[in-house]
């Protein structure tokens, strides 16, 4: 579990995160949602240690990363995997070499075992045929899958996904969402997903945190999203007619069941 306690972050005096506390649970898909510019990415970057909060605490299963030594932080990083918005695959390496990169860097396994693990990861994301291709030769959806394969190569305990569906068509988005959800449950990973894709919220949102203007506005599950009266959350999630109708239908269905 990852515990975030009262983190505050400002840039040049402008507060971006305002005293946010949240828990991200093991074996669950934890979603951070909010409008563009609400502070989601800054929050994830603070959690993974790419940024340092001005104040507050962040615990990874009880380990405080802010007070952690560089050596311990390096060890902890080997328990993390991250899928970036643009996949962040290394251009000069093939898909297979990208997946092998963290293994080559840290694994004590033999080359043959590392290659076996990389092949397993590529198989897991249905990308075994594309191992020899370079990132520029594959589609956006394949790049995301390759990014996931690289993120899980070292068998991480914590998986972070920054806008995993950005730039993807709805069908591919669904595939990526389901893949992340399956991997989370299969390997009992603490997964934190930063998204503003409402399909993801409804599909895989087991624990959702809604951020508005740098502050935590609401938290709950995807079932609770349907029933909540929180106006800013409703305005954000059910901004389109389609989603409003879906919400009404879902509410009516719940009432009829009761």
């Amino acid at each position: 579990m990852i515990e975030v306690k009262n983190i505050v972050k400002s840039f040049e005096g402008r507060p971006v995160l305002k005293n946010i506390s949240a828990n991200f649970y093991e074996g669950k898909t934890n979603l951070i949602i909010g409008q563009s510019g609400s502070g989601k990415t800054v929050m994830v970057k603070n959690i993974v240690g790419l940024l340092r909060p001005d104040s507050g605490e962040i615990f990874y299963d009880g380990r405080d990363i802010i007070k952690m030594s560089k050596k311990k932080m390096k060890m902890l990083r080997q328990e993390m995997g991250m899928l970036f918005q643009g996949s962040a695959l290394f251009d000069s390496l093939t898909v297979m070499e990208n997946v092998l990169f963290p293994l080559n860097s840290f694994s004590k396994d033999t080359i043959i075992e590392q290659e076996k693990r990389a092949k397993f990861c590529l198989d897991r994301v249905n990308l075994s045929e594309a191992g020899h291709l370079y990132p520029s030769e594959i589609s956006g959806g394949m790049m995301k899958r390759a990014g996931i394969a690289r993120a899980i190569a070292l068998n991480p305990k914590y998986l972070f996904c920054d806008e995993p569906n950005s730039g993807l068509d709805p069908k591919t988005s669904l595939v990526i969402d389901e893949l992340i959800s399956d991997i989370t449950h299969e390997f009992n990973i603490t997964t934190v997903i930063n998204t503003h894709d409402m399909n993801s919220v409804m599909n895989i949102g087991e624990h959702i945190i809604f951020i508005k203007e740098g502050a935590k506005e609401w938290q709950g599950s995807k079932e609770e999203v349907i029933q909540t009266d929180n106006k800013p959350l409703n305005d954000f999630i059910f901004a389109s007619d389609l989603f409003r109708k879906v919400k009404e239908a879902a509410k009516n269905s719940l009432k009829s069941h009761l």
């Binding site: 990083r77 080997q78 991250m82 695959l89 290394f90 251009d91």
Partner: peptide, 17 residues
Amino acid sequence: GTMRVTEQIDAMEIMGV
């Protein structure tokens, strides 16, 4: 620079490299 803006350097840092 391209590696920086496409988050490839961040990806390395996350891995602990």
